[in-house]
Nucleic acid binder design. Structure first.
Lengths: 149, 149
DNA sequence: AATTATTGTAACCACAAAAGTTACGGAGGT
DNA sequence: ACCTCCGTAACTTTTGTGGTTACAATAATT
C-alpha cells in the first residue's frame, strides 16, 4: 500500500513553524522543507486550524501554535490526520455461514483494538515540544560533528 | 489505495484449517469462507509453507499446522504477511538543507519504533490457539442465543 | 493408462487511496 | 491598482492491493 505520510508531514509542518517563527513563512516555504507542493501544505494547515491547533498570527501572518507545543501530543496529531484509518485492517466480507467467517471479525476487532491502543498510548507520551527539542539537539550534534571533521 | 487484509485473511485461513480439519479442504473451500478467490488463498498458503507454519497432510492432503497453534503468535503471522510495511510511514523526501527536514526523519524513526513495538508486543501475547478458542466460544454463544430466541 | 481434481506460479487487470497539479476567487499589504 | 498569498475545488498521476486468467505439474480415481 502507498502508506500515508500525512501524519509525518503534519508533525514536520508543526516543527517547522516553531523553529522558523522568526522568518516569513508561506505555504511555499514549508513545502520546500517537506518537499511537497504548497497546496498540500495548505490542506494540512487547514486541518490544523479547524482543530484549533494552529492559527494565523495577526502581525506576521505566519501560522503559529494556537496551543502550547507541550500540550499537543503526537496522538492528538495522529487522530487529526489519520485517526480514521485503523492500523490493522479487518476483512469485512467474510462468510457468515461458516464458524470462522461468522466470528473472526469480532475476535480480531478485540485483539486489534488492544494492539492499536498500545501504539497510540506510546504516541501520547510524546509532545510536539519533545519533537522540537530533539530536532534542535540532533541538529547541534550534526553541526558539531561536521565542524570537527 | 486498497488497505491490505493479508494479515486478517491469513489468521482466518489458519483458524479455518484447524476448525475444519475433519473435512476435505481445498483452496476453493477456504476461499468461500474468506470470500476471496482460490488463487489468493493459495498464495497465502504458499507464504505459510515457506515459513514452516503449514504443511500438507500426507493422508488427507489438507493443509495442516506444521507447528502447534499455541506456538504461533499473531506477531509471527504479522511478520510473515505484512512485516515489511511500517505501521507509521516516514516521509523520506524531506529537504536536508533545513534544520527540520534534515533531522525529522531520525526523530520520528525513534518514536515510531517505540509505538510500533508496543503494538507488536500486544500481538505477540496472542497465539493462534487463543484465536481458535475465542472463535469456538463466540460461536457457541451465538448458537445458544439463536436457540433461545 | 486415461481422466479428473487440485496445486503452485506467473502474468495481467481493475480498483482505490493518497499525493500532486491546475485553476481561480478573495483577502490584505504596499 | 497591483502583487502576494491563502483556501478550495476539480482533476490527474501514482502505486500497492486483490482478483482473474492461464497453464504445467502432481496426485487420486476409475
Amino acid at each position: 500500500m502507498r502508506v500515508s505520510t500525512k501524519f509525518s508531514d503534519t508533525i514536520h509542518l508543526l516543527a517547522f513553524i516553531s523553529v522558523y517563527q522568526n522568518i516569513h513563512i508561506t505555504s511555499a516555504v514549508i513545502a520546500t522543507s517537506i518537499n511537497t507542493s504548497p497546496v498540500v501544505v495548505r490542506r494540512l494547515i487547514g486541518t490544523l486550524k479547524e482543530a484549533g491547533v494552529v492559527m494565523t498570527d495577526a502581525e506576521t501572518h505566519n501560522p503559529i501554535f494556537a496551543k502550547s507545543p507541550d500540550e499537543i501530543t503526537l496522538l492528538d496529531v495522529y487522530l487529526l490526520t489519520e485517526g480514521h484509518t485503523p492500523l490493522f485492517a479487518l476483512d469485512k466480507e467474510t462468510n457468515p455461514l461458516c464458524i470462522v467467517g461468522a466470528n473472526i471479525q469480532d475476535v480480531l476487532t478485540e485483539i486489534y483494538h488492544d494492539a492499536e491502543t498500545a501504539a497510540l498510548m506510546e504516541l501520547d507520551r510524546h509532545t510536539m515540544q519533545d519533537v522540537i527539542d530533539r530536532l534542535l539537539t540532533a541538529d547541534k550534534v550534526k553541526k558539531a560533528q561536521a565542524a570537527s571533521a
